[in-house]
Amino acid sequence: MKRRGRGIACMWYPIGFTVAANPSAATVKVNEDGTATLLTGTVETGQGSLTVLAQIAAEELGVATEDVHVVSADTDVTPMDTGAIASRTTYVTGNATRLAAEKAKAILFNVAAPMLGVRPDQLEARDRKIQVKRFPQRQLPISQVAHHALFVKGDPPIGSASFNPPTVAMDPETGQGLPFATYVYATQIAEVDVDDETGEVEVLRIVASHDCGTAINPMLVEGQIEGGISMGIGLALQEEILFDDKGRQINPNLTNYIMPTSLDMPEIEVDIVPSYDPTGPFGAKGVGEPTSVPTAAAILNAIHDAVGARVHSLPATAEKVLAAIKESRVQGTKQLPGTRRAIAGPAA
């Protein structure tokens, strides 16, 4: 019989470590046609980080995301980046990108101020224009200002910057300190069906509520959360590297190292909690690794809710779950939940 259960798990996760140097650098140049080029050392791994960095540069410069050409991860030409690790790209590289774009923008404002008859601090960059605050009809296209900066003023609008979350030494006596720049929080709820005769667990639904600061690209945040949940399901139920007694891996292929397929994925509901971190670029923190942190705990809590049995080692394979169900029946310490939770099996 299939028994349904629900489980909840919460997590916090650190963003931007400060126990050691953790720098990212970026260069932004504004071209005479009004487009911009961003040089960054970070690498895109499919999560969309380069799109987010282009969005950050575009927002600072008042241009469109598609106006920003990103050159990345070429150690011959791009500036230093600590790496696409530790869920740090949006926060650390994003801050470096925003600062670099801000510097390029300052040059544009210095050039545009006399052209518009105002001080640089009275200007703003919006909709591909540099305009006077509160008097948007007084404006110049960014392309014109960039052209003027390059060929008349001889002051190319280029900015380079780096960001390094301030390193804080740990107290050698207590081991205490401020090891990270900021933190994110999340709760996930899993709904599962457990077959109490085979131990098979089917994850039906996961609701994931995440704080990531400002979601610069909500669709990419959703994508990361869904991807993290698939890894969390693998951790919870399937994935395990097995070794023989000589230390050789028994399952070094995807036939026997079991990962979830699209058929194993549940329905996922993503909730992005509105929040703003003043130390992040436009209030953003990060979302990468945290997405898979609470999933396995939520699923194992749901298994317990469904059949009253606790599995204490991952992955909770069907065989382990069935063993735990049998053990809990023998001990009689936990009663199986009542028929309220019972739903129809495959054959009545």
């Binding site: 085979t198 098979e200 399937q238 036939t255 079991i258 990962m259 979830p260 397929t261 699209s262 058929l263 194993d264 394979t317 069907a318």
Partner: peptide
């Protein structure tokens, strides 16, 4: 059939 996952399982 009982496999270790829903798709592409032995």
């Amino acid at each position: 059939k009982f496999g270790l996952r829903k798709g592409q399982a032995l």
